[in-house]
């Protein structure tokens, strides 16, 4: 069953639960990455992501989130064709970035589907659209970092 179909068969509390679960998985991943990171800049970066995803979790209770003025940057698709590493405690920074970017992509798609699903409800539609944009912004940041470090001559 596609996510769209799945959404159609869910009630609102199931939808919120699915979204919170998705955000929690991201928080867990970034917390692990933060613990592994050896310098302050990296820790800070992952802390920021944990904070943002935590804000998302909270926002899902009220369906309100601060609006960004800028549209999300273009999707770089740098990690789209890369293999998804299986989760374990020994992921390298390269693998963490791939896992994270792919996760942001999936989450953005989930929110986009939800925005489409609620196209008739202005508040929910705007909320889920903004959430989708946020996740795409994260994906862009992670992929930029990936390009800089792992494809300097690529």
């Amino acid at each position: 069953m596609s996510l769209k179909d799945k959404i159609s068969s869910m009630n609102m509390s199931e939808i919120v639960e699915m979204c919170i679960d998705q955000e929690q998985q991201a928080i867990d991943l970034y917390t692990m990455a933060m613990d592994q990171a050896k310098d302050d800049a990296a820790r800070q970066k992952f802390q920021e992501l944990v904070d943002m995803e935590t804000v998302h979790k909270v926002s899902l209770k009220s369906f309100e989130i601060e609006r960004y003025i800028d549209l999300p940057p273009a999707d770089l698709k740098v990690t789209d064709y890369l293999m998804e590493p299986t989760m374990n405690d020994n992921l390298t920074t390269q693998e963490i970035l791939i896992v994270a970017a792919k996760r942001e992509d999936k989450t953005a798609k989930m929110y986009q589907d939800l925005a489409d699903h609620f196209s008739a409800d202005k508040k929910l539609n705007t909320f889920f659209q903004m959430m989708a944009d946020e996740e795409l912004r994260h994906k862009h940041d992670l992929e930029s970092e990936y390009e800089q470090e792992f494809l300097p001559e690529g």
Binding site: K38, D39, A41, E149, L151, P152, E153, G154
Partner: peptide, 21 residues
């Protein structure tokens, strides 16, 4: 497409600070 740094010294000498790469 690029190279990374060899982790051996960092792994065997925790006193040496390294960055995330």
């Amino acid at each position: 497409v690029g190279n990374g740094s060899n982790p051996l010294i960092a792994q065997t000498t925790p006193e040496i600070e390294t960055n995330k790469w």
